[in-house]
């Protein structure tokens, strides 16, 4: 179990790196006309929105496949408020961490 988990992490590290570079290099190597397809551009703009929002949800209110409401939700709520107040990214992340840590410790 321990050994297989460690190997999975390595597969993740190498796999992610290989695909990340391949995608970047491909972009530099294919003809520019692909850029003009509006459907590709639209989907490309929407994918990060979907994935990042999904990650926010899963990391905030689930834990190991179960719904869990805990200090993380308070932390992310504070981050949301900070973003709405146009706080810099660093303040957003730190305020979430501090909120969550304080609640965890009391």
């Amino acid at each position: 179990m321990e050994g297989s988990l460690v190997n999975a992490l390595w597969v993740g590290v190498i796999g992610t790196s290989v695909f990340a570079f391949a995608l970047k290099y491909l972009g530099h190597s294919v003809p520019e006309k692909f850029l003009t397809n509006p459907r590709v551009l639209r989907i490309n703009a929407l994918i990060p929105i979907a994935l990042l929002s999904a990650l926010v949800g899963v990391q905030t209110i689930t834990d190991k496949g179960k719904w869990v409401i805990d200090q993380r939700l308070a932390g992310v709520a504070v981050a949301f408020i900070a973003l709405a107040l146009k706080a810099p990214y660093f303040v957003v992340v730190i305020s979430a961490a501090v909120t969550s840590a304080v609640l965890y410790r009391i």
Binding site: I49, L52, R72, V76, V92, A96, T99, S100
Partner: peptide, 26 residues
């Protein structure tokens, strides 16, 4: 968790997606 890292990560994602939410559709 004791240092709030468990909330810092989703907050980091939220900060990454925020500037992309231009309109109602997004």
């Amino acid at each position: 968790s004791a240092w709030g890292l468990d909330a810092a990560v989703p907050a980091a994602f939220l900060g990454l997606v925020w500037p992309r939410l231009h309109g109602k559709y997004e």
